[in-house]
Simulated scan of single mutants.
Amino acid sequence: MSAVTASLCSTLLFVGFVVFVSADQKIITAQPGQKSVTLPCRAPNNSSTITGVEWSRADLADEYVLLYRDELFDPDNQHPSFKNRVDLQDRQMKDGDLSLILKNVMINDTGTYECEAFMRGTNVKKRANVGGDPISIVTLKVLPPDQKNITVKPGQNVMLPCRAPNNSSSIIAVEWSRADLVDEYVLLYRDEHIVPEQQHPSFKNRVDLQDRQMKDGDVSLILKNVMINDTGTYKCQVFMRGTNMRKRANLKTDPISIITLRVDPPGGSVGLIVGLILSAVLLVAAVVGFLVYRKHKQQNRDFN
């Protein structure tokens, strides 16, 4: 009877261990431009014994996402893309909470993150000595924006939809751009005004936001009196509070909406094809007529 009980206990312990490990491996999804995302991590020990925490990502090699020890962030060897974008949910690490806050989410943030805690007595002077097992593994998937196709006719007004996933109070600027315009943009809206500098001339006085208050994150673009040359792929980007807006070159965020706008000529594709065929027929008729006229004229000369 005791052997059966021991076997049962061993089985239960094994099952419990497997459940604990699988529960610690999480998958989280986010969107580009999202204000923040939390990657959870909780140490199984009393927080009073925790002296630091490291968040890392395997593809960053020797650089880390965040290293916090002795109540300070260690900037050495932190990957540049995470500077000023990461923090702990609780710097006091109460109840062993070591969760990471990642701000202004970008597509390049996609990856598998590992959380490692350092206990009192652990040598954390050199990162090479930090070799414990992770207590949490989180796979973050930042999904690319939806790509929409819109077709209109010349002379119409069109709305290009875009909605930020955050509260509008944190949005300080919106930019609509088109790749073929190079350094000029379609619309830049900040400080409650449309910025005219570097706006492409063809869009001046023809574009506006659907809602300048950006309620519920609505930053859709209104394009008036559409022209054939408006055909192209448009990108919508939002910039959150704390972004450096002094130089446009510093505005590097992922688009939250990509829209391909197609402006059909009058009559659409069918009308265009019919027009081309009719033009070709008229051209052939003109050539034949010219040849007949020339031959007839030559015959009259020979007769005279």
Rank of each mutant, 00 (worst) to 15 (best):
M1D: 13
T5R: 11
A6L: 10
S7C: 15
L13N: 07
L13S: 08
S22H: 06
G33C: 10
T38H: 04
N45R: 04
N46Y: 04
T49P: 03
T51I: 13
G52T: 06
S56Y: 02
A58K: 15
A58G: 06
L60V: 00
V65R: 02
R69I: 13
L72V: 14
D76P: 00
Q78D: 12
D87M: 13
L88S: 06
D90P: 07
L98P: 00
L100P: 11
K103N: 11
M106W: 11
N108R: 14
D109G: 02
T112A: 04
Y113N: 02
E114C: 09
F118G: 15
M119Y: 15
R120S: 14
G121D: 02
N123Q: 13
N123P: 08
V124C: 07
V130N: 13
V130Y: 06
G131D: 13
G132C: 14
G132L: 07
D133S: 14
I137W: 09
L140V: 14
L140T: 12
K141D: 08
V142M: 04
V142T: 04
L143H: 01
P145D: 06
N149R: 13
G155A: 09
N157Y: 05
C162R: 08
R163A: 11
R163Q: 15
A164V: 15
A164M: 14
P165G: 07
N167E: 04
N167T: 04
S169F: 02
S170N: 09
I171Q: 01
E184I: 05
V186R: 08
L187S: 10
L187E: 08
I194Q: 14
P196A: 01
Q198L: 12
P201Q: 06
F203T: 03
N205V: 01
D208Y: 03
L209M: 09
L209G: 00
D211Q: 04
D211R: 04
D211Y: 03
M214T: 05
D216I: 08
V219F: 05
S220Q: 05
L221P: 09
N225D: 13
M227T: 10
I228R: 00
N229P: 03
G232R: 06
T233C: 02
N244L: 03
M245H: 08
R246P: 00
N250C: 07
K252V: 04
I259V: 14
L261G: 06
R262L: 10
D264Y: 07
G267D: 09
S269P: 11
S279H: 14
L283W: 00
A285V: 03
F290K: 08
D302L: 13
D302P: 01
